[in-house]
Design a protein around this nucleic acid. Structure first.
Lengths: 341, 341
DNA sequence: CTGTTAGCGCATTCAA
DNA sequence: TTGAATGCGCTAACAG
């Protein structure tokens, strides 16, 4: 597109201003100096269109002003919300965001950890972590003694809220499409589900519980199985919204009225659920807020200062968001909508 | 979390292996050398858990192995698809992605351009650009003589396709909710809309055209206005899918049958449209593909080699994706669904 | 084949 | 206050 022009460095600025590079550096870093020299240097900077070289600054300062966010899949609505919050928080603090998508690949995540050692970034935020390091903040469950900052969400309580809501609506035969069996998120949802039933003296019927992977197709198929075996359920709790949307699709095909016959509740509060038909009642797991908190914890630690040495554990509480799929109330205004082209 | 341990550098590795730093560097960069020395160095690297310092490498090599993607809003489904494609392409070539979200703020975008000069990244991909530079690839319209690589989509033809499809379905009173008046995307959609009418000898009725901002709320309100003034339309073309989803919502409230009474077509082919009720016919503007192509053009240019000096202009052609909102055919399987938790 | 050395661009200490 | 000099960690050219 053009021939590579020679980079203008601090040396050029110094020469142009008739001072030493030390003076230029001082001006650039806001050290005190006479207004006269300051002005000459700034003129030179402007005249030459000088911009500091980030690599050189990093090498010298031992910081990059970047934090990395490692997520399994950037196309997943939950991570989108999280990324946005992290990006905004980082930017407001003068940090850039390096986004690493691991495509659900564990070795990729392991690899991403190396980023810190490479000094690509001053800190790291990830969802899970096997080997724990410093300057890392994990969003997700970790043993209490893990030596890193950790932002958690009490998803078991969230699941219990969802089920309690269904019970409050007068439902009692509650189907449950859980996520992939054996995973941590599935286990916590299971706990919440059973706790809510127990608290309401409703016996647990194993026939009402099925598993799906955390996809829409999974939800669709699981709903098909469940409804064939148990056509009489009057409510459906799904381990996440994507599963719930798949289930809604199957219910619509079967001509079952939602929420009239069957009320449906999901988890995650993704954007899709605000525009589905019916709109989806959900328990928000506060992806954005967790992203923001994680970024704040990380940035505090990076900047050092008054940060305590021991790892901090923050747990956020889910909230129920009631929409059409679990009540007969119909909204008459569109929700959200700030999705420009 | 832990006390800052001393960074292990190439000097430490050299000492541990009993060789010079030059030798270590050579081994690390796969220069030829005896297997014996190679092994000793690699053992030392492993023993000390050595990882190269990226800033030092960048400073020396004058490259960062990073490309930056500047987008207006990471929460916008179109940019999500684009980001994902760029990220994947970059990763497959050994580059990291630095994501900059400008929040629709023009000065932020201008600021982002500085990233290149700072050498945060080896190249830049953005949607628009005022001042053009090297090592920049722009996704969006640019004058033909702009000195940067440019990936475009013929959205006027896309709009024409959408309208032609409606006409082919036997519709003739076609409402049009365009985007924000005076913007480039709105102008191109206008051209396509009018061209399709002209080609089919349908007179243009200005009363059937309204404007909305590119949001769901905008689409909802515009649809409300249009349907009040012109209740007899039998089709609705929307400037993007988000507008269309807002319009669908209004149509549902009004009890109008889609597609029975009114067929609806949008543009962008976002994920939401695959799960809405009815699913949304749309013209894909190939966000992912444009992202991938932009990344490829940029990486080729960064790596130099056989890249021509003059800027390359690639134009992709939109495609119509027919779904329920414009036909009476109903699918019986959920689409997509790979959205895990 | 390997060790030595000169920068990459900058911040910063030490003298002046 | 300012200039000169040092080194951050690494690559590559050069010498041995």
């Amino acid at each position: 597109v053009a021939t590579a022009e020679k980079r203008v460095t601090i040396v050029d600025v110094a020469r142009h201003a008739g001072v030493s590079i030390g003076t230029v550096s001082r001006v650039l870093n806001n050290a005190s100096c006479p207004a006269a020299t300051r002005e000459r240097v700034q003129d030179a900077v402007a005249a030459l269109n000088y911009v500091p070289n980030h690599a050189a600054q990093s090498l010298k300062r031992q910081t990059t002003e970047q934090i990395a966010l490692v997520i399994p899949d950037i196309a997943n609505p939950v991570y989108v919300a999280m990324s946005k919050a992290v990006q905004q928080t980082a930017k407001s603090r003068g940090y850039r965001l390096v986004l690493v998508s691991t495509d659900e690949n564990a070795s990729e995540e392991e690899h991403a950890l190396r980023s810190l050692e490479h000094r690509h970034a001053d800190g790291l935020i990830l969802k899970l972590v096997s080997r724990a390091r410093q300057k890392v903040c994990v969003i997700g469950y970790l043993p209490d003694d893990a030596p890193v900052d950790n932002v958690r969400v009490d998803s078991a309580s969230g699941a219990a809220m969802a089920v309690q809501h269904l019970i409050d609506q007068g439902r009692s035969r509650i189907g449950f499409i859980n996520g992939t069996a054996g995973t941590v998120p599935a286990a916590s949802r299971s706990r919440g589900f059973e706790r809510a039933l127990f608290d309401n003296r409703i016996p647990l019927d194993p026939g009402l519980v099925v598993h799906a992977d955390f996809t829409m197709t999974g939800g669709y198929q699981a709903a098909a199985r469940l409804l064939e075996a148990e056509p009489g359920i009057d409510a459906l709790f799904c381990a996440n919204d994507v599963i719930a949307l798949g289930a809604l699709r199957r219910l619509r095909e079967l001509g079952r009225d939602v929420p009239g016959e069957i009320a449906v509740v999901g988890m995650d509060d993704i954007e899709l659920g605000k525009v589905s038909t019916p709109t989806l009642t959900s328990v928000t797991l506060l992806a954005s807020e967790r992203g923001r908190i994680a970024a704040e914890l990380l940035l505090e630690r990076i900047k050092g200062g008054a940060t305590p040495d021991e790892p901090r554990k923050v747990t956020v509480m889910p909230r129920l968001i009631v929409r059409e799929s679990s009540t007969d109330y119909i909204r008459h205004r569109p929700e959200g909508g700030n999705v420009a082209h």
